[in-house]
Write a protein that binds this DNA or RNA. Structure first.
Length: 138
DNA sequence: GCCAACGTTGGC
DNA sequence: GCCAACGTTGGC
C-alpha cells in the first residue's frame, strides 16, 4: 500500500464536506506531476487530507476508492482524477509549521515543494505524522 | 494583500 | 529546443 497527501483549500472543499459526501471525485487537478501521482494510486491507498491557504494543517486520513479515471470537469480529455472517501479525522491536526520543525520530516514534499497538490508520502513519514496527530496510522 | 516560487505558454 | 513572459499557487 502506498501513502499520499492531497491538498484542498477548505473554502472550496473542506474536510467536513468530504466526510459528509462519503466518496467524492478529487477533480480539478491541472498539473502533470500531480496527475502522474494520481495514476499511480491504487484502491486502498491512504492519503493525508491537508488544508492549504487556511489552516495549513493535516486534518484527516482518506482512502482511494476509485483509481484514475477521466475528470468529468475537464473538456480537453487530458486530465484525470481519483475518488476518495474519508477514513478518520486526526485527533489533533498537524500543522505545516510542526512538520517543518520536525527533524525527520525535512524531506516531505510538503516542505520541499509546497505547491504540488498531490504528493507521495513515505511510510516512515506517514507513521511520524500519525503519531503527531495522535491518530491510528492503519 | 503581497510576493516568491514554480509551471506553462508561445515566439523565435 | 530555448527562454522570456505570463499566470497561478500558496505561505506569510
Amino acid at each position: 500500500m502506498a501513502y499520499w497527501l492531497i491538498k484542498s483549500e477548505p473554502f472550496k472543499w473542506s474536510w467536513d464536506q468530504h466526510v459528509a459526501k462519503g466518496a467524492d471525485q478529487w477533480d480539478g487537478v491541472r498539473n502533470y506531476q500531480a496527475r502522474n501521482f494520481m495514476r499511480a494510486m491504487r484502491r486502498g491507498d491512504r492519503a493525508f487530507f491537508y488544508h492549504s491557504n487556511e489552516g495549513l494543517e493535516i486534518v484527516g486520513i482518506s482512502e482511494v476508492v476509485a483509481e484514475a479515471h477521466p475528470d468529468s470537469t475537464d473538456d480537453t480529455g487530458k486530465w484525470e482524477c481519483v475518488d476518495f472517501k474519508a477514513v478518520r479525522p486526526f485527533v489533533r491536526p498537524v500543522t505545516r509549521a510542526e512538520i517543518k520543525d520536525h527533524p525527520d520530516l525535512q524531506d516531505m514534499v510538503l516542505v520541499k515543494n509546497s505547491r504540488l497538490s498531490v504528493q507521495p508520502v513515505t511510510e516512515p513519514e506517514w507513521r511520524i505524522v500519525c503519531t503527531l496527530g495522535e491518530t491510528d496510522p492503519s
